[in-house]
Design a protein around this nucleic acid. Structure first.
Lengths: 132, 132
DNA sequence: TTTTTGTTCTATCTATAATATAACAAGTAG
DNA sequence: CTACTTGTTATATTATAGATAGAACAAAAA
């Protein structure tokens, strides 16, 4: 699992880590049951503090993407075993809100509905691959 | 134009104002040429500081949603007259990135491509109305 | 037993957000 | 011209979030 952070970015480091871990799960680079690097190891590799990585892991845990197993470390969670948290959870609800805000902003810019749908489909293709 | 803010929200006040002004433009409640309330008047109505509203207006100006005309105040910009800023601008590019991140997170949660597309279409319908 | 794990605690520093007071140039209404 | 309102800028203060730092803990595994 490759994680790169940008110190100059205005996005907080722990959110950058969170986003990239989610992306790795989505792409299948790390499957359910896979053990993530320890907070200390990842912090050392990235050249940042232990607590910054720990915060990223805590957020991922609260959002249901990973589970903590003490000494065993952090492992990728199985979405099928936490359907309540994911299907009808806060994440799905926030996704709907974000999509709505994006559509409104696009329309305020003079954009059309078709353009927005095309942008969504392109993002979808990039995220899910050429298949479906 | 009705604007409501939530002091308890974790979202900054100036971003809440920004989002709601954009939403009002998108819904057609305020059309190009419409004069927004002055920063002092809106700050008084919302019970917040002058500078907080001023920051929201400055962001909206930088993003091309409104234009400043000195004494005349802040007026809603015409998207047709600033196509470079909107069509191929930073906003459109950030929208694509956000859509991509949303799609990746949805897939990491075990969601399907069809589900994401359906969510995007629902957000689109809510933003553009039953028409299109 | 020893080591490694996530977690918690306290502390410090920086940047952002919000407030407050004041002042400015510019345009407009009277 | 005069007086007022506009956005804008400057400075200052307070509060919160982000990041770092050092230390320590219980739990689990080698």
């Amino acid at each position: 699992m490759l994680i790169r952070i940008d110190q100059a970015s205005d996005e907080p480091l722990y959110l950058q880590i969170r986003t990239q871990v989610i992306a790795s799960i989505a792409r299948g680079e790390i499957a359910p049951g896979f053990t993530l690097p320890s907070v200390r190891a990842l912090a050392r590799d990235l050249g940042i503090n232990l607590h910054t990585v720990n915060k990223a892991y805590a957020v991922l845990r609260d959002e249901g993407y990973i589970t903590m197993r003490g000494r065993a470390g952090a492992v990728v969670a199985d979405p099928a075993k936490a359907p309540l948290l994911h299907k009808r959870g806060v994440a799905t609800q926030r996704m709907a809100e974000t999509l709505h805000d994006l559509a409104l902003a696009h329309r305020a810019r003079g954009g059309s509905a078709d353009e927005f749908l095309a942008a969504a489909q392109e993002a979808l293709t990039r995220a899910f691959g050429k298949d479906r």
